[in-house]
């Protein structure tokens, strides 16, 4: 269970996240929407213990992600925004590095490689890969260690429609066993993948609930709520 209780995060007196309270149950797929600078990435970083809240409390399975960062990070797979990678490494080398830090056996890397379809580029340097492949490498790294929670910050940003579909299918497949929180600007993606929708604007959660059932409903709701603010 993930919990935010009245969490505020300020950067130089500016609130990036403002009094956010939420609960996420195991197995949910959360589509996290919001305009640029709304506080999506900050919320995710708070969840990872990468940032410390200015006030309020964050907990994952009753543990504080900032104080017990190492223990919490063992159960989270994270794909950061813009997918930073060690470009000078080969794909196999990079996955081995992540697996070694997460203390995961080599056999598990192979199963992730198959899941994400990276076999053909294992011996290629990451800097030589296409954007789609780079994204898959980032996703594979997040999946290593069979994390219970998967946090994906704009996983399909900048990808062509075919790669977008591939990543969407992967998220759906993985979500059967995990809690997934993903942020995106592609509203149709939320309609396809998420089981629950959260919209954040100016650091506050303005919608938290079921996604609209009608086609195009997410877009309408998003525009309505974000315009209002």
């Amino acid at each position: 269970m993930i919990q935010f209780q009245q969490v505020t995060k300020k950067f130089h007196n500016m609130s990036a996240v403002d009094s956010v309270s939420l609960q996420i149950k195991p197995g949910e797929i959360i589509g996290f929407l919001g305009p640029n600078g709304a506080g999506k990435t900050t919320t995710m970083r708070l969840l990872l213990g990468y940032l410390r809240p200015s006030s309020g409390a964050v907990s994952i399975e009753k543990k504080d992600p900032h104080r017990q960062r190492i223990a919490i990070l063992k159960m989270i797979g994270y794909l950061p925004e813009n997918n930073p990678l060690y470009l000078e490494m080969k794909v196999a080398e990079y996955l081995q590095f992540v697996a070694s830090i997460k203390e995961v056996k080599k056999e598990q890397i192979q199963s992730v490689v198959e899941q994400v379809a990276l076999d053909e580029v294992l011996e290629t340097k990451i800097e030589e890969l296409s954007r789609g492949f780079k994204q898959r490498v980032g996703l594979a790294a997040a999946l290593i260690g069979e994390p219970k929670i998967l946090i994906l910050d704009e996983p399909t940003s900048g990808l062509d429609p075919i790669e977008q579909d591939r990543i969407k299918d992967l998220i759906k497949k993985m979500a059967k066993k995990k809690t997934v929180i993903f942020s995106t600007h592609i509203l149709s993606e939320v309609e396809d993948v998420a089981t629950r929708l959260m919209i954040i604007n100016q650091g506050q959660i303005v919608y938290d609930g079921e996604k609209p059932k009608k086609a195009g409903g997410v877009e309408k709701l998003f525009k309505k709520l974000v315009k209002k603010e």
């Binding site: 990468y50 960062r69 190492i70 990070l73 813009n82 930073p84 830090i101 997460k102």
Partner: peptide, 14 residues
């Protein structure tokens, strides 16, 4: 600069 520091510090290392 490349933000791999975020990648590194969101892995279980201190």
């Amino acid at each position: 600069r490349t933000n791999t520091i975020e990648l590194l510090l969101t892995l279980p290392v201190s």
